[in-house]
Structures are given as structure tokens and as C-alpha cells.
Amino acid sequence: MDYVNILIKGVFIENMIFAYFLGMCSYLAVSKTVKTAVGLGAAVIFVLGVTVPVNWLLENYVLKEGALSWMGAEYADIDLSFLSFIMFIAVIASIVQLVEMLVEKFAPALYGALGIFLPLIAVNCSILGGALFMQERQYSTIGEATAFGIGSGIGWFLAIVAIAAIREKIKYSHVPAPMRGLGITFVITGLMGIAFMSFSGINLGGSEEKEDNKDQVTAVVDDTDNTDDENH
């Protein structure tokens, strides 16, 4: 049940695009047609689903303070967490390179359509963001981390397919010339973001521990996006 909660939370409530604006660059640039959007979205689900659990293992058995205790008592107080950026990104980059080679071999048409954005999945903020949020929320098992990774990936997939469908239709409407393309896409994304904010009040009724995690997460959002609590 917890897995389902984490999954649904990742898809809707903590949607990578609409709640955190992670992965906006490729989201805006590859969303001109639904077909390429589906391809990129699927690649993101796959990469997030693989990298988050791998990074979870890395975090819990190498990087975290005391994580190295399996090597012996003398390693128990080593804290390597300052290396987490570089380790996470190395894992992500190698997995993306692998995906790139596979796609090039088995789906050359998709490879051509995705162009520069396939290698750029490595620098898609949602992938590293997934790893960093995983680190911050301290999921207790690898299953939860996987559920989180796949859930965030599906959320990203939904967002990019939705905006691609809207952009295909909006070609037929009279958008003011300077707003065409990028400008109107920004505004639509903003409106969708407001719509997705309605999910934020939903409580899925997880266990005590989950509640604590959620508080930590909202604290981050308060710091970055939402200073209005302090101002009132």
C-alpha cells in the first residue's frame, strides 16, 4: 500500500514539472508533437526508474554517514555525503549513455527525432532532482525508492504528453504573433501548474513516518517557492 501511495504522490501531488519545475528545458523543447513527447517521456520513466534505486544503494551503502560500516568498524564514522553530487551524476550519465546506444541501435527513427535531447536526458534536472529528493526524503527501502522514481517518471511523462497535445491543437488558434511558440507554452504550463496545485491538499493516509517525510518535503517548497508564510 505504501508503494502505491508513493507512486501516486510522485505522479500527481509532487509532480516533477508542475510542483518543482524540474526538467523544464527538454519539456519545453521536445513538446512540439505528441509522438516525440511520448518517446522522451518513456525514456525519462525508464531512466528515473533505474537511476533512483541505484543511487539509493549508493547513498545507503557508500555515501551516508556510517554507511560504510559494512566494511568494518573502523569505517563506521566516515561521511562521504559531500561526494553525492558527483557520484549521482556519474551513475546517471553512464545509464543515459547506455540508453542512448540502445535507442540508436533499436529505434533509429526515434533517435533522429529526439536529436540532442537524448544525451541531454543526463542533464534533465528531473533525473538528478529525483536522486536529490530521494536523498532528502530518506526512503527506507529500495522498493520505496523505485516506486518514487517510477512515479516521478510517470508524472513527467503525463505532463509532457499533455502539453504536446495542447501545442498540437493550439496551432489552429490565433495566438498573438510574439507569443507564438515558447511564450504561449509558458503561460499554458503556468495554468496547468495552478490546476495541479489542487492535488496538493490530498492526504493519502500513509503511516506516521510518511507524514514526517512529507513535512520535510513541504519545508523545502516553502524555502524555495513559497515565502508568503513568513510575510503574513
Partner: peptide, 21 residues
């Protein structure tokens, strides 16, 4: 308060694009 919320940043960038173009 809408302006503090994250979606407004998107509107603001959209407006900047509009003016620039």
C-alpha cells in the same frame, strides 16, 4: 499572493518573451 506561487514565474517569463519578441 498568486505572484509568490510558482506558476506565476511561468507567466512572468511568458510576458518577458512577449515584450522581447
Amino acid at each position: 499572493n498568486l505572484i509568490i506561487l510558482a506558476p506565476f514565474a511561468l507567466f512572468a517569463v511568458g510576458l518577458i518573451i512577449w515584450v522581447q519578441r
